[in-house]
């Protein structure tokens, strides 16, 4: 290590070329070991989990379609009643889209919370960031 050597003219925190190389190779080594460990500890996706994921996907897809569809139909009907074609339909489609999105975001937030809780509870996977506690 030469970074402590003042003769070289490199200031503190500046790496020489070979140090940078050494650092890069060490970082690469860590990266390789990390991905190996991740592959080893990652739970294997079984059919049941895959099925549940499929269910979640369908759930979200339906949510989006229904929001827009509901907005379109209600907007159409309101336009008919009030004679404002096409403005209310346009507004309602946009609002319906927003509502569908809102439902999707809520679903995703719930899934996220569940996944995080499951990860915290899993004893086999240690979270390196939490070791100091």
């Amino acid at each position: 290590m030469s970074d402590g050597d003042p003769e070289k003219g490199l200031g503190r925190g500046v790496l020489s070329a070979e140090d940078r190389e050494a650092f890069k190779s060490r970082a690469g080594e860590i990266d390789r070991r990390l991905s190996e460990a991740k592959a080893r500890y990652a739970p294997k996706p079984d059919a049941r989990q895959r099925g549940q994921a499929m269910g979640q996907g369908l759930k979200i897809a339906v949510e989006l379609v229904v929001g827009v569809g509901f907005g379109a139909i209600v907007g159409w009907w309101l336009d008919d009643v009030l004679g404002t074609r096409p403005w209310l339909m346009i507004v309602m489609v946009l609002l319906g889209f927003g509502a569908g999105m809102l439902n999707i975001i809520r679903t995703a937030q719930r899934l996220q919370a569940q996944a995080e809780a499951a990860q915290m509870a899993a004893p086999s996977v240690r979270d390196a960031d939490r070791d100091e506690e």
Binding site: G67, G96, G98, G100, L102, N103
Partner: peptide, 10 residues
Amino acid sequence: LISYLIRPIS
């Protein structure tokens, strides 16, 4: 309101 009303539909 709409996101509440579309629940039974979805």
